[in-house]
Design a binder for these strands. Structure first.
Length: 487
RNA sequence: GAGCCGUUAGCUCAGGCUGGUAGAGCAUCUGCCUUUUAAGCAGAGGGUCGCAGGUUCGAGUCCUGCACGGCUCACCA
């Protein structure tokens, strides 16, 4: 059953059609936009405006309406903002006023024409000489004062959220700007943007569970990518010495305020660079975007004051754990695993998992200002180059900000023989029951056999970066259509 | 996957502890109102109280199950 509000508006559509008026028109060309008009004439006096006979035409959604009988005030909203319109019976005439009152509802798109003036309260307003119904809206807008609050409705009907909550629109505009800034930054440094397959036969480049899908014509099981890494490194082999991809990645894992099944990652690879060089690059990149968005390098995130001033702190994973523990548990695996288990970490007998788990719990969660964490264990870094002095760790860092991992980077492993051994080691772990391992990728090893120049690569979680720079508590606030169960 | 909380009119929310035929504001409709901006005044309509069971003479309210959502935790980025 349709509700009466919709019925009333459908009735209006019928009546309009019977009058020969199309309630869904396609022929209104506005000459101006709200923000531009308001900023251009903000400092004009009433006298100036009076002598200024220019006529403006604008279009937008009617969002507020105050009817005084023989006059009407309203606001319309276009892509740039909102502007007030004023209808007077003695200006517009009886017939048009009547039409407006009878057929125009909040939510409709209308086109307006008129001169600019200032109201008593000083608001620049269009004195309407003519208007046109452009698109009829059938459904009422959310409450004008409280807006749309219901979180579920906000996500399911994001269009309503964007119409009635300006701060939400602002977040997504910022997201777009951040992504544009990242592209700008990388393009200027000679990085080439590419697109690599999302449908993969082997879901490689990370340790995560993939989504499965199926290609009918090829009768082939495929996976949605969990990272673009291995394809990008093939391109480095092919001579794209500086390359990046900014796109969607999929992981078949739990959803939370930090995790959406599909999320946006930016991965870059730079030949003849090391992970040390990438610390510089990542610092510069995030500061470049951050400063442009926030106007400062110090900002509030969910009650935490974050200082992104450079240079950023660097800590060693193992050393940082040691400093938090009373006794040395790192020398003996059984002590290490016991400690991990006591913290509820599912280490599955993998030393690196236990170590990083303990790190996250004891150190990572407490990090506020940007901090590079160095010295990640080799057994959980199957694609990273081993440290020259200590083969148990890799030349890798993760960037933590506000207790969260925002970036991950390393000097790439380009020795095909070592790479093959690492994959074999992963398969060994799989046979011992570990689910999240890196599959053997013979084709990728083939690429390394061709010779990949020394290269360092970094991945940045774009959603998390956007959360940080827009002070958003949940990843769903920075993804337009976050994953929800069907109603 | 587990725990806690939530779901009442188009929207924002009361009511629920202590069971007795459902409330407000905005929006809608009618009337009045020529500088308002949460406009104002007077009146009206609008609800399978998330879904399904149970207890009861009687359930929005108590109990159970389910669905969806939020937060926290676990895995992860």
């Amino acid at each position: 059953m349709e509700n009466e509000l919709v019925e009333q508006r459908k009735e209006k559509i019928k009546e309009l059609r019977s009058l020969g008026i199309d309630p869904f028109q396609n022929n209104f060309k506005p000459t101006h936009e709200a923000d531009n008009v308001l900023s251009t004439y903000a400092n004009h006096s009433e006298e100036d405006l009076k002598n200024h006979s220019h006529e403006f035409s604008l279009a937008g959604r009617l969002i507020t309406l105050r009817d005084f009988g023989k006059t009407i005030f309203f606001h319309i909203m276009d892509r740039t903002g909102k502007i007030q319109g004023y209808i007077r019976k003695d200006v517009i005439g009886d017939e048009k006023l009547g039409f407006f009152k009878k057929f125009i509802d909040i939510g409709d798109f209308i086109g307006i024409k008129g001169n600019l003036f200032k109201t008593k309260t000083g608001e620049l307003t269009i004195n309407i000489k003519d208007f046109k119904l452009i698109t009829k809206s059938l459904y009422p807008l959310p409450e004008k004062w409280h807006g749309l609050k219901d979180v579920e409705t906000r996500y399911r009907k994001r269009y309503l959220d964007l119409i009635s909550n300006p701060e939400v629109k602002e977040i997504f505009l910022k997201r777009t700007r951040i992504i544009r800034l990242i592209r700008e930054f990388l393009n200027e440094r000679g990085f080439i943007e590419v697109e690599t397959p999302i449908l993969n036969t082997i879901a490689g480049g990370a340790l995560a569970k993939p989504f499965k899908t199926y290609h009918n014509a090829l009768d082939l099981e495929l996976y949605l990518r969990i990272a673009p890494e291995l394809y990008l490194k093939r391109l480095v082999v092919g001579g794209f010495e500086r390359v990046y991809e900014l796109g969607r990645t999929f992981r078949n894992e739990g959803v939370s305020t930090q995790h959406n099944p599909e999320f946006t990652i930016m991965e870059l690879y730079q030949s003849y660079a090391t992970y040390e060089d990438l610390m510089e690059l990542v610092e510069e990149l995030i500061c470049y975007a951050g400063e442009a968005i926030l106007g400062a390098l110090e900002f509030d995130y969910q009650g935490m004051m974050i200082d992104m001033s450079r240079p950023w702190k660097r800590i060693n994973l193992i050393e940082s754990i040691k400093s938090k523990l009373a006794e040395d548990i790192l020398g003996r695996d059984e002590l290490l695993f016991k400690k991990a288990a006591s913290l509820g970490i599912a280490h599955k007998g993998i030393r690196g998992k236990a170590l990083t788990g303990i790190f996250e719990r004891l150190v990572g969660d407490g990090i506020v200002d940007p901090t590079f964490v160095l010295g990640f264990p080799t057994d959980i870094s199957p694609l990273a180059r081993k440290n020259d002095l200590n083969p148990d760790i890799t030349d890798r860092f993760e960037l933590y900000i506000a207790g969260r991992e925002v970036a991950n980077a390393f000097s790439e492993l380009n020795d095909p023989i070592d790479q093959k051994e690492r994959f074999l080691r992963q398969l060994d772990l799989k046979s011992k029951g570990e689910e999240e391992i890196h599959e053997m990728d013979e084709d990728f090893i083939g690429a390394l056999e061709q010779g990949m120049p020394p290269t360092a690569g970094a991945g940045i979680g774009i959603d998390r970066l956007v959360m940080l720079l827009t002070n958003s508590p949940s990843i769903r606030e920075v993804i337009l259509f976050p994953h929800l169960r069907p109603e």
